[in-house]
Design a protein around this nucleic acid. Structure first.
Length: 527
DNA sequence: ATGCACGTTGGATCG
DNA sequence: CCGATCCAACGTGCA
């Protein structure tokens, strides 16, 4: 029996390598491609900001256009998702809802709610993984149910699993011809809204344009340079180049405009044709695997995006300082390197990975000692590639709360940027107020004499803020704080271990091992 | 058990 | 302008 299907686009805003859309087409006589624009959901769960709204709407418009070329269309329905579904299931006599499987708690909850609705209203639900290279559950299973907490261990597990799933075939007009498309009048009624319709500022300074078409173009452009692809080493890329020194594909992966599996296999093909190529963790494939790493850990860690109740996160008494947080967020720290990065982030929605490191270290363990959760929220709002797992994972990493522990390695807000941009061109671009400062002072303009500041046309403390902290003092101080936190942590762990040695615990342990032995016996007898 | 190697991408110095 | 080396030194995991 063929279904009448609503295909719900959530994060897989593309037609290439879209396994669940393909399955929907193959099992249906009528297909309604739908995006439910649930503003309350997107704002409260994903903290989506203006730039990302632009990117999302552009991606939807592109999807609509690409569906149109295959004889279908995209229906963007605004409203609370459950109400929208309830209304249209009955109106369109729907027997199946298909959707991409996602791992974030709020998306999982949405799927569970849709399944409950399906049981109530009598439609089937099909979801398939398409947003990650692997079904992360398989990685957990191989590792004994818990996530691997180091990249190396993670790679080891993957080597046992083998290559990721291959991308599914491209969709054609014929696939869509077999199903009835929505009536053209519906497409008119449920068109993709404009930013102004959603009361979002119509202007955007971001050079990134959302959509599968743009994503694929950028992908091809990068893959055409074989030498660049095979020699790519992430730490060698430059955080303050005026044009991105990395691929800049992350927003497209994050929104699902591009398939990570497609990219992974395109890279494999290029590697296969080359004599030498770089390897994880620094290679391009290695970058996809970092993404996968954080997806895997996040999928199995409770309260992954917060400190409290998060078993892998170091518990730290961070300062609460709304004023300093605000200055960091709005590029007013007085350190040009930090403020330039935050300006690029605010204007364009993308900054280089190492630039993220610099501002994250500055906010947390380096200088301000403010919780990584605050930084994570700011990134979530401002970054086009904001991603639940990767964002939280990297913030824990940079704040030395999890994964990374060499907390004596602190990024200097003056010297770090100098290495790759001694003239300060990056700073001049994003902080035009400092444009005429001599290179000698551009990273620490407060050290210029009054006369020199006047000549440069910018008085520090008047036109541009003084640095909000003395980096040397602040980082030394924070180093001591971090040391204390870790000593305390160590003591607590010791106490817990001692507790675990009480007779009850030992008994439990013994019971478990006996249980295992008896299991072994059972296994042997059945053999 | 205790020691040792190791970790995506710090910083300074030297050749 | 690089790459190599050292500095100082963390927790984790393995032998």
């Amino acid at each position: 029996m063929l279904h009448r299907t609503i295909h719900l686009f959530r994060k897989e805003l593309r037609l290439h390598d879209n396994p669940v859309l393909l399955a929907a087409l193959e099992s249906s006589e009528a297909l309604y491609p739908v995006y439910i624009l649930d503003r309350a959901f997107l704002t409260s769960s994903m903290h989506i900001g203006a730039l990302r709204w632009h990117f999302l709407l552009q991606s939807l418009e592109d999807l609509h256009k690409n569906l149109g070329q295959l004889g279908s269309c995209l229906l963007v329905i605004q409203g609370e998702y459950e109400t929208v579904l309830r209304d249209h299931i009955q109106r369109w006599n729907i027997t199946q809802v298909t959707l991409d499987a996602e791992m974030e708690p709020f998306y999982k909850e949405m799927e569970a709610n849709i399944r409950r609705l399906g049981a109530e209203l009598g439609f089937e639900v099909l979801s398939l993984v398409g947003h990650s290279l692997y079904n992360t559950q398989r990685i957990l299973d191989i590792n004994g149910g818990s996530p691997p907490l180091t990249y190396k261990r993670f790679l080891h597990i993957l080597s046992l699993l083998g290559d990721p799933e291959m991308p599914v075939r491209n969709l054609t007009a014929e696939d869509f011809q077999r199903c009835r498309a929505p009536d053209p009048s519906l497409a008119e009624c449920y068109r993709v809204p404009l930013p102004v319709d959603l009361k979002i500022s119509p202007e955007s300074l971001s050079p990134w344009r959302g959509g599968e078409t743009e994503g694929l173009q950028r992908l091809e452009q990068h893959l055409s340079d074989q030498g660049w692809v095979t020699s790519f080493a992430k730490p060698r890329t430059i955080p303050n180049s005026l044009l991105p020194s990395t691929t800049g594909l992350s927003p497209y992966f994050s929104m699902g405009c591009l398939s990570v599996r497609t990219f992974f296999y395109r890279l494999s093909n290029i590697y296969a044709q080359a004599k030498h190529h770089s390897l994880p963790p620094v290679s391009l494939q290695g970058q996809l695997l970092w993404r996968e790493f954080f997806y895997t850990v996040a999928s199995a860690t409770p309260n992954f995006t917060q400190m409290s109740g998060n078993p892998i996160c170091l518990q730290i008494c961070w300062y609460k300082d709304a004023e300093r947080l605000h200055k960091w967020k709005t590029a007013q720290t007085g350190f040009p390197w930090i403020d330039a990065i935050m300006t690029q982030l605010r204007q364009e929605g993308w900054i280089h990975h190492l630039a993220r490191h610099a501002v994250a270290c500055f906010l947390t363990r380096g200088d301000l000692w403010i919780s990584w959760e605050e930084g994570m929220k700011v990134f979530e709002e401002l970054l086009l590639d904001a991603d639940y797992s990767i964002n939280a994972g990297n913030w824990m990493w940079l704040s030395a709360s999890a994964f990374f522990h060499q907390y004596t390695r602190i990024f200097c807000p003056v010297r770090f940027g100098k290495r790759t941009d001694p003239q300060g061109d990056y700073i001049r671009k994003y902080l035009p107020i400092l444009k005429n400062f001599p290179s000698k002072y551009i990273y620490e303009p407060w050290t210029a004499s009054e006369e020199e500041q006047k000549q440069a046309g910018c008085i520090i403390g008047q036109d541009y803020p003084f640095p909000m902290v003395n980096h040397k003092e602040a980082s030394d101080h924070n180093l001591q704080l971090m040391k204390q936190v870790r000593e305390e942590q160590h003591r607590t762990a010791q106490l817990t271990r001692d507790d675990a040695d009480d007779p009850m615990e030992i008994k439990v342990k013994r019971d478990r091992s006996e249980e295992n032995i008896s299991k072994g016996k059972v296994a042997r007898t059945t053999e």
